[in-house]
Simulated scan of single mutants.
Amino acid sequence: MSPPVQFLAITFLVDNTIEWMTKLPPGFTHEMRHHLTRKAAELDPITGVPILPLGDFCCAAHGFSALIETNETTDTPESNRFTLFDTGPDSNTLSRNLSGLGTPLGPIERVVVSHWHADHTGGLLSFLDRRSRELGVKTIVDVHPNRPTARGIAPPPSKKVICQLPRDPSFEEIEAHGGTVEKHRDGHAVAGGTVWVSGEIPRVTPFETGLIGGVRFTPNEDGTAGSWSEELDIMDERYAAVDVLGKGLVIFSACSHAGIVNVVKDAVERFSRPIYMIVGGLHLAGPELADRIKPTVNFLSESLIPAPTYVLPMHCSGFAVKVALEAALGEGCVPAGAGHRVTITGIPDDEATLRPPSIRSR
């Protein structure tokens, strides 16, 4: 990455939840405020009061998509860079929420696909179609090259494949629908150097043992039908990070199949910057993952020094870890959801007196 940015804004376009009324920290705004202040609200002809456009409010869906807006300065908002991180699960949700929020498509120069799972790629082709149709431009699509033929779910103990996930778009389909495919196995900077997209995430934490029940279909080399095999480690998964001046790293981990502790350890080792905010799915929902919650929360709240200022457990995190994080971090655990916006403005590092991060052994 280039030097830390002074401006970062995040708009959550797709998430499993919506939340209109819970108190949010400074810099976070509810969707209602957006509709009443950032858009021209219709006035009722009788009362003269703005009408709340409920039909434009975001819908929730099982998936994730966040629009990341970055700038190295606060003086030139017209030069903000826009990166779309994932596209949700289907062709409708992202498009609907973009329209409802009035989000312009033109500035979105790149889509980063965190990993090949349909709840993160399902809206990609429709987004590319719409941007190509309305603007006549191509969109860079940043992907890991190891795209699976198919992925499925085979829960233990039987390990029978009970379903296949919808197929991810192929590289050829992405190109045909107005995308320009960029394949990246290694970490790299995008958006003028303001956003870091990781490479493969090292697995170093003993209790983070991957996606339970994950399987991958591999065709035979001769073109005949293939077979399913266990795939605990989703090695094409990548996180994104933005370094904010005087605050530290904001980490985007869409699903954390690698484990959020592994993600944080990699970011700390790579950048030697404190973690200001963790955003996205922690993949700790369900009874089979309950034993990972306590060590995860302990790491984030006690072993990582300084602890993150904010953790936004979204998408596949699950209710139990939200409760545990709130108990450990208080208002530092933020109930973010679709339609929310976060604005972070940097401050000089010397005024912030940032400490280098460290990880306490337990």
Rank of each mutant, 00 (worst) to 15 (best):
Val190Leu: 10
Val190Gly: 06
Val190Met: 06
Val190Ser: 03
Ala191Glu: 02
Ala191Ile: 01
Gly193Cys: 00
Gly193Glu: 03
Gly193Lys: 02
Gly193Phe: 05
Gly193Ser: 03
Thr194Val: 03
Thr194Met: 00
Val195Glu: 01
Val195Lys: 01
Val195Pro: 00
Val195Trp: 02
Trp196His: 10
Val197Phe: 07
Val197Ser: 08
Val197Ala: 09
Val197Cys: 09
Val197Pro: 08
Ser198Leu: 07
Ser198Ala: 09
Gly199Ser: 02
Gly199Trp: 01
Gly199Arg: 01
Glu200Cys: 11
Glu200Ile: 11
Glu200Ala: 12
Ile201Cys: 00
Ile201Arg: 04
Ile201Glu: 00
Ile201Gln: 04
Ile201Lys: 00
Ile201Ala: 02
Ile201Trp: 06
Pro202Leu: 04
Pro202Asn: 03
Arg203Thr: 11
Arg203Glu: 11
Arg203Cys: 11
Arg203Ser: 13
Arg203Leu: 13
Val204Thr: 15
Val204Pro: 10
Val204Gln: 15
Val204Ile: 14
Val204His: 11
Thr205Met: 08
Thr205Ile: 11
Pro206His: 06
Pro206Gly: 06
Pro206Lys: 05
Pro206Gln: 05
Phe207Gly: 09
Phe207Cys: 08
Glu208His: 03
Glu208Pro: 03
Glu208Ala: 05
Glu208Leu: 02
Thr209Glu: 15
Thr209Val: 13
Thr209Phe: 12
Thr209Asn: 14
Thr209Gln: 14
Gly210His: 02
Gly210Glu: 02
Gly210Arg: 04
Gly210Ile: 05
Leu211Tyr: 15
Leu211Asn: 13
Leu211Pro: 10
Leu211Lys: 13
Leu211Trp: 15
Ile212Ala: 12
Ile212Met: 12
Ile212Thr: 15
Gly213Trp: 03
Gly213Met: 00
Gly213Tyr: 02
Gly213His: 02
Gly214Cys: 05
Gly214Asn: 08
Gly214Thr: 07
Val215Tyr: 08
Val215Arg: 06
Phe217Trp: 12
Phe217Cys: 07
Phe217Pro: 08
Phe217Met: 09
Thr218Glu: 11
Thr218Tyr: 10
Thr218Ile: 14
Thr218Arg: 12
Thr218Trp: 09
Pro219Lys: 05
Pro219Asn: 04
Pro219Gly: 07
Pro219Ser: 07
Pro219Tyr: 07
Glu221Asp: 15
Glu221Thr: 15
Glu221Ile: 13
Glu221Ser: 15
Glu221Tyr: 12
Glu221Pro: 11
Glu221Lys: 15
Asp222Lys: 05
Asp222Ala: 04
Asp222Asn: 07
Gly223Met: 07
Gly223Ser: 01
Gly223Gln: 01
Gly223Arg: 01
Gly223His: 05
Thr224Asn: 08
Thr224Asp: 09
Thr224Pro: 03
Ala225Ser: 14
Ala225Ile: 12
Ala225Asp: 15
Ala225Tyr: 13
Ala225Arg: 15
Gly226Glu: 05
Gly226Phe: 06
Gly226Gln: 04
Ser227Asp: 14
Ser227Met: 11
Ser227Tyr: 15
Ser227Pro: 10
Trp228Gln: 05
Trp228Ser: 06
Trp228Phe: 05
Trp228Thr: 04
Glu230Asn: 12
Glu230Leu: 14
Glu230Ala: 14
Glu230Phe: 11
Glu230Met: 12
Glu230Ile: 15
Glu230Cys: 11
Glu231Cys: 10
Glu231Pro: 08
Glu231Met: 13
Glu231Ser: 09
